[in-house]
């Protein structure tokens, strides 16, 4: 686990370093492209499936040039997951039209075999998820790979982390928030700080 976290940290740092303009305030198109290429190489375009049954690519469709709030959960979890989803539900109300335009929520299932798109749709409806909030499942090896890349892979689903990861792919700024001590309000402040990051 430590190794995974370290790997993720390294890459996040690498992405952050790459994103830092060397001179002046304007970043050249080339460095942005480099950053994107590096991120794409790291995250890859592994295929996942949304609660609507759409097939999506991890980097190109979900992360590229976006501000995202990521968490890991599973649909049959009764303790911490409904709380995390509840906080996201509260946050989506606060974000209003920004959700799906400036900010996306990505909830990755750590139990993709049970969490079929139909079950995730039902779960999403329970939390009144709006279109900018995607619940992700798919082939187990694909989802495991995506979770590994996000530093969220666990051996037992019950061991999933209770973190929100807030990232801005354009600037390479990533932050982590311990979900269970946060509120929709406190999370909104972090999301806005990442959203307003100028790189």
């Amino acid at each position: 686990m430590l190794r995974i976290l370290r790997a993720l940290t390294l890459v996040l740092v690498a992405v952050a370093v790459l994103s830092t303009p060397s001179f002046g305030q304007q970043r050249s198109a080339t460095s942005r492209d480099d950053l994107s290429a590096t991120a794409q190489e790291y995250f890859t375009d592994v295929r996942l499936t949304t609660q609507n049954g759409d097939s999506v690519r991890l980097y190109s469709d979900l992360l590229k040039a976006k501000v995202v709030v990521i968490n890991a959960f599973f649909g049959t979890c009764t303790g911490s997951c409904p709380k995390m989803s509840g906080i996201l539900s509260g946050l989506q109300d606060r974000l209003g039209d920004h959700l799906g335009k400036d900010v996306w929520f990505l909830s990755f299932s750590v139990d993709p075999e049970t969490d079929t798109p139909e079950r995730l749709k039902e779960y999403a409806d329970r939390f009144h998820a709006k279109p900018g909030w995607l619940f992700l499942t798919g082939k187990k090896e694909n989802v495991d790979f995506a979770l590994f890349k996000l530093g969220q892979k666990v051996a037992r689903k019950e061991d999933h982390l209770t973190l929100f990861i807030i990232g801005n792919d354009k600037t390479g700024l990533w932050k982590k928030v311990f979900a269970l001590s946060s509120t929709a309000e406190s999370l909104q402040a972090v999301v806005e700080s990442v959203l307003n990051d100028k790189g």
Binding site: G86, I87, S89, G90, F127, T183, A184
Partner: peptide, 8 residues
């Protein structure tokens, strides 16, 4: 009332 503000 969840986490202070979210109604569920």
């Amino acid at each position: 009332l969840l986490a202070g503000s979210t109604r569920m």
